[in-house]
Design a protein around this nucleic acid. Structure first.
Lengths: 160, 160
DNA sequence: TATTGTTATACTCTATAACTATA
DNA sequence: TATAGTTATAGAGTATAACAATA
């Protein structure tokens, strides 16, 4: 039997209110999957598009700043930057103030690609909008942020 | 500077409505992280707890059935079952109807552990309830399911 | 032939430790 | 000493291909 017990399965889903984590991950994968199908022609993953978008918006940022924007460990952005640089989409110039911090910016090819990526992104957003209303989306985002964003007053004042 | 531009960062988060994917992943990780901290003493990951819970509820299931319940490829449940069996939490008996399908059930140790795991799970749920109300949680779950669950009428009737 | 169990592999993002080079 | 950049490794869940054994 390929669906042993629909009622039972449903009860599993509903009773264990805390399958929230699972629900979250599946939704994540679904959204990323739709994103991937939209961006597949450009071979761009979500993380790459985010990095490119931030670089586009804040050209001249350093890798550490990019990491801050992405709220991701530096070690990870390094890999992204390496890949983007290898593909000729970004360039890293020695910062004016010194040689350590790198001033990252899009190349011409990067700018050109971003035009297409933004279009793909709009299609992705359109898909999401077909699934839920803007009000629902806003509420969803607010609830999600409540789960991971440090809430004001939720942590005691720094002891340092 | 460790937080280069709070306003800019916020604008990134808000303008790109489609950072929903990112928002989802971070929320997922946060929820799983809280789960992990609660289950750390037992060295049980979410997937293991889910598998154990299903086996507890539907003893005698086969691996394929468990895969159906979890909506996960068989290849993955095999690994989970192997780990759980290795830890003495489940047993696999030759099914009465034949030798292929395995009748999976909890061992005594498995049942004993589940008592503690359920308690840990309740603490996890309590945490989630401290973050959002039940109404919000229900709405969140509904929206999430809309993102990944096949919607009624969203796919054409089977052509088979 | 179809299904079950299995192994291996790959992919996503995230996270940590540890090293180098620079300021 | 502190920061930036880097490398390597690991962890979580998910997914696919491919094979053997069984029905």
């Amino acid at each position: 039997m390929e669906n042993p017990n629909d009622d039972a399965e449903m009860s599993i889903e509903l009773e264990m209110g805390s399958w929230l984590g699972r629900n979250l991950r599946r939704a994540t994968n679904a959204v990323f999957g739709q994103f991937a199908s939209e961006f597949a022609p450009f071979n761009i993953r979500p993380a790459l598009y985010l990095a490119l978008s931030i670089i586009e918006r804040f050209p001249g940022s350093s890798g550490a700043e990019l990491s801050d924007y992405m709220t991701v460990p530096r070690a990870n952005t390094v890999v992204l930057l390496k890949e983007l640089e290898g593909r000729g989409l970004i360039k890293r110039a020695p910062n004016a103030t010194g040689r350590r911090a790198q001033a990252i910016s899009l190349t011409e090819a990067g700018h050109a690609l971003m035009i297409e990526l933004h279009a793909a992104h709009e299609r992705h957003v359109a898909y999401l909008e077909s699934v839920m209303s803007e009000a629902e989306s806003n509420f969803l985002n607010a609830l999600l942020q409540r789960l991971w964003k440090p809430q004001a007053g939720s942590s005691p004042p720094s002891e340092a």
